[in-house]
Design a protein around this nucleic acid. Structure first.
Lengths: 110, 110
DNA sequence: TTCAATCGTTTAATTTTTTGGACGAATAAA
DNA sequence: TTTATTCGTCCAAAAAATTAAACGATTGAA
């Protein structure tokens, strides 16, 4: 049934909406790249992200917040320092699911 | 080699940048949903997209242009009518590749 | 040719997002 | 306690994206 497929797809889109918006921005993509290039284990401090991206601290904070609320990154507090790291397993899985469903729909209609 | 992985990933991010920006917007997601819910074969006319999304025609045109430049949709002209339809196979594949690479990186570091 | 229909573009206004200075909170060291 | 460090937040300004009215182009019908 087509309606079933599209209903699922709509739900899947909604589920991924925040993630898509979060990563659909070059500045945040740059932050993610910085995190990827750094050590995953302790994570990266805000100051270091700030240096690597040439952004002000409020700007970094702003984007980190968006990424965090989209559940793409997490932080671990240690003293006055905040270590940010990628934490996107669940959301990546969901995103892949969305892509798969669109692919399925398209292959049905060729 | 970690550097190799991250270099690939950076390239993959760049390759997907336009797509990510294009679909990282609720209005454009709504347009995509409308296209998905309609017939793929002839596609959907601008007027119909306009009705389904409650947007003005210039707004629809604006977003269709962004989606088209991101190679997510295509159009077929027929008389004065333009039929838009999903055409995202290549970009979906690329996007899935990006997601896979990030997943690989994360699974290495747990 | 003339008229109607469909659609893209231009432009200015509105809205949203992003940015950085100033400030405050929390922690640790002196 | 006092001082220094790290970081988030507030807020006003700047920048970017979005919007709709007006206009023009193209096609087909009358």
């Amino acid at each position: 049934m087509k309606h079933e497929v599209t209903a699922n797809l709509a739900a899947e889109f909604k589920k991924n909406q925040k993630v898509l918006t979060a990563i659909g921005d070059e500045t945040r993509q740059a932050i993610l790249m910085a995190l990827i290039q750094g050590q995953q284990d302790p994570g990266m401090r805000v100051g270091e992200i700030k240096e690597k991206t040439h952004l002000s601290r409020p700007a970094v904070s702003h984007h980190l917040k968006i990424l965090k609320e989209a559940q793409i990154i997490s932080l671990r507090k240690e003293g006055t320092m905040n270590y940010y790291h990628l934490d996107a397993k669940s959301k990546l899985k969901s995103l892949k699911n969305l892509v798969d469903q669109i692919e399925m729909l398209l292959s049905q209609c060729e």
